[in-house]
Design a protein around this nucleic acid. Structure first.
Length: 570
RNA sequence: GGCGCGGUAGCUCAGCUGGUUAGAGCGCUCGACUCAUAAUCGAGAGGUCGGGAGUUCAAGUCUCCCCCACGCCA
């Protein structure tokens, strides 16, 4: 039995995520976690909300709530939606947890002891009216280059020129609009990533099995220009993890917090501690400390491509730099973007389908299946309502759902609602079993290597094989001359339904569970021996004819949704 | 402007280290079947693999140039 530590990129606390976010990390991570559990492996699957930073503070202010309350509420909202999509996290933590406070401070202390932290005196814009330092992008003014009057402190959206906040003419706070700004000196801590460059380079080079997308992004950051740059790990904010070295105060850094990019990935570790604190597990270190039993853990991270630099460089820099025996990621699965109807999903513009809305209109399995079988694995991919409708109707309703329906209804009408009395399987039945054995092995291989689209294709082919078999042996004809033979065929077909429930569970857990209930079986075991597995429903085993497993998406629904989600989110 | 990933049948995509008549699903056409959610199964049509040049006995698959789309960065 292997041990799998699996993490999904942690979603930002600010609002509900769209389907593009879901398919880029949480959903494939869940597929993998469910599959590894089904294979009998020990799995710790973690995710959390990323709660620090200016956007969270502003969102809370906009909602008129204290930041801590806002985060707590939004965490619950996201947790509930995750549950709705059947994301099987062993724990869904929070980067604002006390566990993460302690660990983040611990890492900062360890890095400091290794000589990897340096202090830098920076000039930053302070807004007297807001009573706070302003991040570059929250300062607006007139672009000195093109005269655009809503240029941001980091870049002018109009002429795309990169700017410094001090370049702006008539600068003002984007938060309050106040022009009462001044440049103040403030001290910050920098992580000396440049000193870790060759270590990181060697480490990345050792990962020959990582996707090109992943390593090419990492290599670019390591080698472009002057190479990997040192980076500030602190900010002048109220909301966040106070800057300390371990338990000790950090002289000169009072009132400052760690930068969100520094504490967010550490939450992967802290989340395991939260998992223990929540009473769900007994020992988190055996997952994370290679000196305490984690040496046999295989750690896989899932994320969108925008998160790759943090996972290949920043977080490993934190871990390597600490010189402590923490577990580093073994495999990193990154995804491209899912586009929406010819454009991008946009949280700010409310364009596309958001996770809560998706669940309002259709069950989780519909989305899980389509998103996974069309996930943006090798390049950006496209969501359109036509493709979604076609995929769901054809794959789920026609191929799988209808198979379950035709078999159970045929049996009920000819033999009753129980597995009929019958003899052993015949050559044509064994031919199917042999064919399936090959397909199941392929399916397992694709899932093991996280080839998501291919695994979905293979699963579908396994469903199709059932329909082909029925068409080939035609029990409705056989029944007329030789009811006994038809009974054998239908017994195999009924067993196939159980096989489909077991194999499909990582993709469509609710439908699988429904099938198992209808087939009156409890344990959902993985089919390790197909001959045995497909012989488990014996004569006399009662079942219920299921309700329609997947109903089709009508043209009318599709048209309505297309219109409803085209514009901004109401 | 630099870099990155792509440009393969109407659509969405596979094609590893170059090697028989370029593949899948959907869509389309025809046929079979009638147990089933007007479902299923079979057959077929459909591509000069973005363009050009080169390397090679042989290139979608390697090299160079160009075009297009997207993304990232400065």
């Amino acid at each position: 039995m292997a041990r799998h530590l699996i993490t999904s990129a942690i979603p930002y606390i600010n609002g509900i995520k769209h389907l593009g976010n879901l398919v880029g990390s949480q959903l494939p991570a869940d597929l993998y976690a469910r599959y590894q559990r089904a294979r009998g492996h020990e799995v710790l699957f973690l995710c959390a909300t990323d709660e620090h930073g200016t956007p969270a503070e502003l969102a809370a202010a906009k909602a008129g709530k204290p930041i801590a309350d806002y985060c707590a509420e939004m965490h619950e909202v996201q947790a509930k939606i995750a549950e709705g999509f059947r994301l099987s996290f062993d724990h869904f933590g929070r980067s604002s947890s006390t566990e993460n406070h302690e660990l983040t401070q611990h890492f900062a202390g360890a890095l400091e002891r290794q000589g990897l932290i340096r202090e830098v005196l920076e000039k930053q814009v302070y807004s007297n009216a807001d009573g706070r330092f302003l991040p570059d992008r929250y300062i607006e003014g007139t672009c000195p280059n093109c005269g655009y009057d809503k240029a941001r402190g980091d870049q002018c959206e109009n002429c795309t020129k990169q700017l410094d906040p001090t370049d702006l003419l008539n600068p003002r706070s984007a938060i309050s609009g106040s022009k009462d700004l001044e440049v103040r000196e403030t001290k910050h801590l920098y992580l000396r990533q440049s000193a870790l460059r060759s270590d990181l380079d060697k480490w990345i080079d050792s990962k020959s099995d990582w996707p090109v997308l992943t390593t090419s992004i990492a290599k670019k950051w390591l080698h472009d220009g002057d190479g990997l740059q040192d980076r500030g790990i602190t900010r002048d904010l109220d909301w966040g993890i106070p800057v300390k070295k371990g338990d000790a105060d950090w002289p000169g850094m009072e009132g400052k917090v760690f930068y969100v990019w520094f504490d967010a990935p550490i939450e992967y570790i802290a989340c395991a501690k939260e998992w223990v604190a929540a009473g769900k597990g007994g020992d988190w270190e055996r997952w994370w400390r290679i000196d305490k039993g984690a040496d046999d853990v295989r750690y896989t991270q899932f994320m969108g491509k925008d998160n790759v630099p943090f996972h290949t460089l920043s977080f490993p820099a934190t871990i390597l730099g600490s010189a402590e025996p923490w577990k580093l990621v073994d495999h990193l699965k990154s995804f491209n973007y899912l586009n929406y109807d010819g454009g991008q999903f946009s949280t700010s513009q409310g364009r596309g389908v958001f996770m809560d809305q998706a669940l309002e209109i259709l069950p989780a399995d519909y989305w899980r299946w389509w998103l996974l079988s069309n996930c943006p694995e090798s390049s950006d991919s496209e969501f359109t309502w036509e493709l979604f409708q076609q995929g769901v109707n054809k794959d789920l309703a026609d191929v799988l759902g209808n198979f379950v329906s035709r078999v159970t209804k045929f049996c009920r009408s000819k033999f009753g609602e129980a597995v009929p009395e019958s003899g052993p399987y015949e050559p044509e039945d064994h031919a199917l079993i042999n064919e399936l054995a090959v397909k199941v092995a392929d399916y397992e291989r694709y899932l093991d290597t996280m080839e998501v689209r291919k695994s979905a294709q293979e699963l579908r082919a396994i469903w199709v094989a059932g329909n082909e078999y029925l068409q080939r042996v035609a029990p409705w004809s056989t029944f007329k001359e030789d009811p006994g033979k038809a009974a054998v065929q239908i017994r195999l077909a009924l067993n196939l339904i159980v096989l489909y429930a077991a194999l499909s569970a990582p993709f469509i857990p609710d439908a699988s569970a429904q099938i198992m209930r209808d087939m009156q079986l409890d344990a959902l075991e993985w089919p390790t021996d197909l001959n045995d597995f497909l012989d488990q429903l014996k004569a006399g085993h009662a079942f219920d004819v299921p309700d329609v497993l997947f109903s089709k998406i009508s043209d009318e629904d599709r048209a309505n949704w297309q219109q409803r989600f085209a514009g901004g989110r109401s």
